[in-house]
Design a protein around this nucleic acid. Structure first.
Length: 270
DNA sequence: ACCTAAACCTGGGCGC
DNA sequence: TGCGCCCAGGTTTAGG
């Protein structure tokens, strides 16, 4: 799922549901997902929720936090007497909360992880620490231009590199490049001024649209309320192989860039 | 520094 | 229906 709009949708919903709840017990059914430290969380109460790129952070009042990465198929779903129960055969970790509520971590492919850190040390955690600036937050045009100018690697690979900028994944990278009419294979340092600025604007715009539709439920993603997002109904180019370009009508092609499926209108994206 | 393929896993879709 | 193959919102690692 799990690009910036999907994780942010989960974060903001959990802020509403989870804050104030006490963690009474944690049931880890697949050890590799949550390898250690769960005892630090038991008895703690949820204080706040943060997000760094695609990483969700849940802070407790006892000085500890836990980080969740959903990778490709992870789900984080809140359940209470009022919401549908999304426990399934893919539920690998259950946080039992007070007031008959639960937080489920589901993950078909088991690539996701949960990790405990002291709250004060979350930003120094190795994965978080390496993250680059984030669109809609602290990615300025100047910084974006520096990042692009620093390499001749294909621009799409840069957009997906979390150490260069964080939060953008394959869906939003494809759609933003289409929106900006830039070919994903273009060397990053070959973009002109107006292209650089157009691309940053497109990234911000597409992420905002993703947020508006509560993310893309192309496959496994669901919100913390257990519902589907709707951005998949508005894909600009992602996944539209064989269909017509929304701008010029040419056929959308699938190519591979940096080992990832990449969708382009060869007519529009130069 | 950069590139690729493979690895971590499982399920869905498609062609035959 | 079944089987084999390819694909998948991410990231890391091994090898060149």
């Amino acid at each position: 799922m799990p690009e910036l709009p999907e994780v942010e949708t989960i974060r903001s919903q959990l802020e509403k549901y989870l804050v104030g709840h006490k963690i009474e017990k944690i049931d880890v059914r697949v050890a590799k997902i949550f390898a250690s430290g769960k005892e630090k969380l038991v008895g703690g109460r949820v204080k706040s929720l943060r997000r760094f790129g695609k990483v969700l952070v849940i802070d407790l009042t006892n000085g500890y936090s836990f980080l969740i990465h959903l990778k490709l198929t992870g789900q984080v779903v809140f359940s209470s007497p009022k919401l549908p129960n999304k426990e399934s055969s893919y539920t690998h970790v259950v946080f039992h909360l007070d007031k008959n509520a639960n937080l489920f971590f589901n993950d078909s492919r088991k690539f996701g992880w949960i990790k405990v850190e002291k709250t004060a040390e979350v930003e120094a955690e190795p994965f978080v620490k390496k993250l680059g600036p984030e669109p809609l937050k602290n990615l300025t045009l100047k910084k974006f231009q520096e990042i692009l100018a620093s390499t001749r690697r294909p621009v799409k690979i840069l957009l997906l590199d979390q150490e260069k900028l964080s939060g953008v994944g394959n869906i939003y990278a494809n759609d933003a490049l289409w929106e900006a009419k830039i070919n994903p294979r273009r060397p990053a340092n070959s973009l002109g001024l107006s292209e650089q600025s157009k691309l940053l604007g497109a990234i911000e715009e597409i992420l905002k649209i993703g947020l508006k539709y509560q993310g893309a439920s192309d496959q496994w993603y669901i919100t913390a309320e257990g519902k589907k997002g709707r951005y998949q109904e508005h894909f600009l180019v992602y996944g539209r192989v064989g269909e017509s370009c929304r701008r010029c009508g040419a056929k959308i092609r699938r190519v591979v860039v940096g080992g990832r499926g990449t969708f382009i209108c060869a007519n529009c994206q130069k």
